[in-house]
Nucleic acid binder design. Sequence first.
DNA 1: CTGTTAGCGCATTCAA
DNA 2: TTGAATGCGCTAACAG
Lengths: 333, 333
Amino acid sequence: MASIKDVAKDAGVSPQTVSNYFNRPSIVTASTRLKVEESVSRLGYTPNASARRLRTQRSNTIAIGIAPSGYSQIYDPLLHALVSEADAHGLRIMLYKTDSKSEEIQQFASLVAGGDVDCFILADTDHQDPRVSWLIKHHQAFVLFGRPWGHTNLHDQEVAWVDVDGKQGMADMTRHLIVTGHRRIGFLGWPDPSGTGSDRRAGWEEALVTAKLCSQEETASLREESEDNIRAGQIACTRLLRRHPDLDAIICVSDTLATGARTSLPHDHTLVITGFDNTSSAESLGFPSLEQPTRNIARELVRIAIERIKYAEDGLAPEDKQHVLLAPTVIAR
Amino acid sequence: MASIKDVAKDAGVSPQTVSNYFNRPSIVTASTRLKVEESVSRLGYTPNASARRLRTQRSNTIAIGIAPSGYSQIYDPLLHALVSEADAHGLRIMLYKTDSKSEEIQQFASLVAGGDVDCFILADTDHQDPRVSWLIKHHQAFVLFGRPWGHTNLHDQEVAWVDVDGKQGMADMTRHLIVTGHRRIGFLGWPDPSGTGSDRRAGWEEALVTAKLCSQEETASLREESEDNIRAGQIACTRLLRRHPDLDAIICVSDTLATGARTSLPHDHTLVITGFDNTSSAESLGFPSLEQPTRNIARELVRIAIERIKYAEDGLAPEDKQHVLLAPTVIAR
DNA sequence: CTGTTAGCGCATTCAA
DNA sequence: TTGAATGCGCTAACAG
């Protein structure tokens, strides 16, 4: 494996010049640059990342925690988009395991001390999340995917986040149903407390009340709560329809609940069910849903990650937005 | 950030002893070990991974390529399982972007030269895959997820792989249908050439013929081919049923096609549809499916990865199986 | 069993 | 503008 010395020897310059060629090309003479360039390509030289990391104390790596089994907030398409986006900025994505929040803090400690990671992306944070406290205390760069619900100050400059505007999306979906002729629109949500759940519900409520389709008080009766699984969704949907047989649409907080609702109805039922996430279930069962702006989420996460790394190192405060809310897209079906 | 020297000073031993404590604990006296242990925990010391990598010339990292958009063979649950399994062996998972096979080889070159990766896991390889040739030529450790279909010698010791035994799974599913009273069992598959597709189809054929439910020649009429999307599955299912209205079950090569088939039928239709992968669609639509042995796949991939790394470095030939076929599980519904 | 010496590959001082 | 020295943190040899 060729090292910087081999290249230097081959090009007839000092190792330092080769280093400069990569890191500060502007200070190398054009003619020298040419010689180095040729040697580099001839020897197929690539700088050794570990050595560079040891020297610069920077890993150029973003770490993402993923829960080993079942549901994690970082969904597959987002991971793809993140890898692509990170790659475009010369950053690498590393995965680490997180069974619990306390275990995750252990991982932070070892990854940081090991010099393996410059910035963390965490999902599913809440009020006074111990992980967030730990990261702030240790001046470790991080970005949240999802607002830290319940955080006293959602716009705390120490806590950067990117989130999907569920309220906006649900309001858009509600308006879509209204303008396509629906008048009695129910809602299937998650039980409190759920920041994301309340936010999404608020979108439905506001759009409904604004359109004067019901009063604020009535909304409570037009909705049901359910755990996020198909069977529970079926039951909740049945309960809701028993109370309000006149509904002509039900907006669900997730595709999972929408799937439950859909499958609890006879196939030829005209009731419209809508979901959230536009998963393959939504496509297969043919119900409308809201699609997350995955590409933009990744772009913003990486942009902010880079700024946070600079901030953590040089202490220079980031100028651009550190709190980004992106609206999902209505997929009509 | 505490370094090995700090720990050594604190514990009153040499840095080397601290190093031994971590890497060859057996050669350190119990009493010394205790002292070191205390200092380590007091200072919160974690070895610097970059320094260790530079020194040992090993990254302890497995790289997985993921396609930036859309479908990749490495599905989400497998990624989770891999992270968990790798963690248990002190290995880390790194993701890299792969738009095309030629781009992927570029990535290989830079990741290897940068000392970032010890072993690659690749999916979706075929006959004379240029990526595989490159890796072998450069003595780079790798494992395939999925057999290299068309490879002259599937049990070439240079090419290790882990795969799911689709044929076995499909045969199991077919037998499951037979013993639960089905006699006319059709098949919805992918168009040739598809190694995975033919393999799965063979499972259905063999089980059917073995049970003397039809002759080998008849099977050709009992099946339809379709691209792997829902709409195409609906159409193919309709076509098949027009030809064979007497079918009492249809085995599909994927949950996607099964979803198409299922939704093309009236809700109260008694025809049984089965899929492959046991996705949320299978659960939501309530059709039987085959579940991939994710946990075991991850375990085998990591085990083989470790052996391949040793092999690539010390040249000592791996003893254990380098070609593993794992059967999926029938999820009856 | 422990301590000393040396160097992995690179980038940042300085001096020329 | 280029070259020579130094050390990031660690571990493999060796010597004690």
